[in-house]
Design a protein around this nucleic acid. Structure first.
Lengths: 154, 154
DNA sequence: TTAAATAGGACTAATATAGTCCGAAATAAT
DNA sequence: ATTATTTCGGACTATATTAGTCCTATTTAA
C-alpha cells in the first residue's frame, strides 16, 4: 500500500547499526559485512546520507562514517526523504482541462492533507525509537500519536 | 516521500467524479471525457475497482459503472490498496544472515508499527471527505486524528 | 439483429530503481 | 615521500515496475 524503496529499507538498517555503536566511525566495508548489504550499495547510501547531513564522513585511512546528530533527533521522515526525495503525493496528472471539468483540483487539496498527516507521524519517530526493543519504548509512539489535522486549515 | 502511483491518483479523481453524481451509472467513455484521462486507462482502473468490489458494473447498452457503497463508507485505504496492492512496507530485503548480525529484524517490527499508523489514518478518511470543499469538512479529519499506537502492543 | 457497453488479458513502451564500477582526492601510517 | 586505506562524485548498466494501449469475447437494450 505504502511503498518504500529497498534503498530506504537498507538505509534504516545501516543507520540502526551505526546508532547502536555511535562511539567511533564505521568504514563502508565494515557496515557492508555487518549488515550483509553489498558494498557498492552501502557506499551509495552512505554518500547520500552524508550529502543530506544525516551522517558525517572522514576520508583517508581510518576514516569512515558517523551519525551527524544524536539518534534521538534524527527522524524517520528525514531519512525517508533523503532516499525517496521530497515527493509528497502524485502530481496532478490529469490535464488542466480535465481538471476543471471534474473539479479535480479540490481533491489535490485533500491529498496534501493526507500527506501532511503521514509526514507528521513519521516526523515524530526517531532513529532512537527504531533501535529500542518493541516493548520498552517510551516515546510518543508508545503513548498516543495525536495529529492535529484541523490546524492545517487555520 | 510517500509515493502513490499515477493510477491511484487517477482512481481518486474518477471515484470523486462518480461520488458527486451517484444517481446513475457512468460509462467509461463518459468518465474519460469528464476527467480528461485516456479511455483505455480509465477502463483499466474501472475494471480493477469492480474486481475489488468498490464499484459495480452493468454490461451492455446503457450499462456503466456505479459506486458499490455510499461514499461515506468507501475509505481511501481501500482505494489505495486496490491500485497498489496490500504491500505495507519493504520486505526485509537483507539476507537472513546479515539480519541476524545487525539485529535488523527488530527494526522490521518498527516498520510494521509505522505502517499500521499510516493505514489507520488512511482508513479514517473516506471518499465523501475527499469531495467536500476543504473548509467545510466535519469528519474526524477536521477535528483531530487520534492514532492509538500503544494499543498495538497490547 | 445491431449497437453500445463491460470483461479479460496480452502486449508494448516508458520510467524508475537497484546495483556496479571507475578514477580522483584525502589522510594516516610507514 | 610513498603507500595503503578510505571517501567522493558521477557515469553506467541491468532489472523491475508502471503506464498505457489494443484486441477479442460477452452481455444487454433497443
Amino acid at each position: 500500500m505504502l511503498r518504500l524503496s529497498k534503498l530506504t529499507d537498507y538505509a534504516t538498517v545501516i543507520l540502526s547499526f551505526m546508532a547502536r555503536d555511535n562511539s567511533h566511525v564505521h568504514a563502508a566495508m565494515e557496515i557492508a559485512s555487518a549488515t550483509g548489504i553489498a558494498l557498492p550499495t552501502v557506499s551509495k547510501i552512505l554518500k547520500l546520507l552524508v550529502n543530506a547531513n544525516v551522517l558525517t564522513s572522514t576520508r583517508g585511512a581510518k576514516g569512515g562514517y558517523a551519525l551527524a546528530r544524536a539518534p534521538e533527533i534524527i527522524t524517520i521522515a528525514q531519512v525517508i526523504s533523503v532516499l525517496e526525495g521530497p515527493i509528497a503525493l502524485t502530481e496532478c496528472s490529469i490535464s488542466q482541462q480535465g481538471c476543471e471539468q471534474a473539479s479535480g483540483c479540490e481533491i489535490s487539496g485533500s491529498w496534501s492533507l493526507i500527506n501532511q498527516t503521514i509526514y507528521n507521524a513519521l516526523e515524530s519517530l526517531t532513529l532512537a525509537d527504531l533501535i529500542k526493543p518493541l516493548r520498552s519504548r517510551d516515546s510518543a509512539w508508545t503513548q498516543e500519536v495525536l495529529i492535529p489535522v484541523a490546524s492545517l486549515y487555520r
